[in-house]
Computed example of a mutant assay.
Amino acid sequence: MTKSVKRQVREQIVGALKGAKFPVKTPEDLIAAFPDGENTTCRVGDLKMTAGEAALLLKASDFPFTSAKAVADLVVERAGI
């Protein structure tokens, strides 16, 4: 994946979480923070990922998250984007 795809995915995740109250302490709270819950979808070119799919990349030990950027960075890293 190109750097611009990474950047776009990060920006979409951060944008989707703009209304979230941090710290987010549980996976359930993170999913609830997305506008469409687990169905919130990030699309860049042929890449499509829902918040539910992204949540599967996270572990209980990753919590709490202190910012949308931290969520986005970890999802992008774990997804291999």
Rank of each mutant, 00 (worst) to 15 (best):
L30H: 02
T66S: 13
M49N: 00
G15Q: 07
S61N: 14
F65S: 02
G45A: 10
T2N: 15
K59C: 08
Q8C: 04
K59A: 12
A60Q: 15
P64D: 08
F63N: 06
R7F: 08
D62G: 05
A72G: 04
E11A: 13
E11P: 00
A51K: 01
G19K: 11
S61K: 15
A79N: 12
A72L: 06
L58H: 07
G37S: 10
L74C: 08
A51S: 12
V5K: 09
M49P: 00
K69C: 06
C42H: 03
E77L: 11
L57W: 02
L57R: 08
Q12F: 00
E11S: 10
M49R: 02
F63V: 08
A32S: 11
N39F: 08
V9K: 01
E77P: 01
G80S: 05
I13T: 05
M49D: 00
V9E: 02
G52E: 02
R10A: 10
F63Y: 15
A32K: 10
K6M: 09
G19D: 13
A20F: 04
T66E: 15
F63H: 07
R78P: 03
V5P: 00
F65E: 01
D29C: 07
E11M: 07
G19L: 10
D73T: 06
G37P: 03
P27H: 08
A32Y: 03
E11R: 11
T50D: 03
P35H: 04
C42A: 13
P35N: 08
E53V: 11
F65Q: 03
K6Y: 07
L74M: 14
A32L: 07
G52V: 03
A54L: 07
R10D: 11
